[in-house]
Amino acid sequence: MGLEDKLPSGILLTTVEGVFGWMRQASFWPATMGLACCAIEMMAFGAPRFDAGRWGQEVFRASPRQADVMIVSGRVSQKMAPIVRTVYDQMPNPKWVVAMGACASSGGLFNNYAVVQGSDHIVPVDIYIPGCPPRPDMLIDAMFKLRKGPVMHHPIGRHADQLRDQAERDALAAPALLELGGPVR
């Protein structure tokens, strides 16, 4: 027994967050964070065959200040890691990160001194795409999953700030993935 029973037909109830999420997911723009092989597939994602413009995502922003999602496309070297983090820090909230490909997800083929073993060591990752490199179709799928999940249900207002700060504190306090061991890694 709630308010919805008393409404006339044609009226829907939702939350303000839901409305925000619904509007946000319509057109969110990626930052150009092209690193390696996956960057070429990321360009193919924006090019005619796969045409990310069909749902308003072909606008790759050169400035992180105008971007909503960072696609880490390729291997992150030790030398590049601080720059990836800087770009992430410069993006306005709310922001999401896609780890595109095996290298960005886990270091992939390059299990060595030069490559950071997964971009989640430096930025919080929302969605991981397997593949070396993943096909543009897989990036499209990941973008849709990102929209339906984290973007659609992103909190707003003071609630959002609290959650973000809490996540930051948790991330700093949590042990590194390397130290966790076992199947949780």
Binding site: Q78, G107, N111, Y113, A114, P183
Partner: peptide
């Protein structure tokens, strides 16, 4: 390499620096 890097990676006495790869219940060394 970054300017502040210590060591010269291609020397034979410089380790590759990989991490063990973990699977559920198993581990593969670098």
């Amino acid at each position: 390499m970054p300017d502040d890097w210590v060591g010269h990676p291609q020397r034979k006495d410089y380790p590759l620096g990989g991490v063990p790869i973990e699977f559920k219940g198993a581990e593969v060394p670098p």
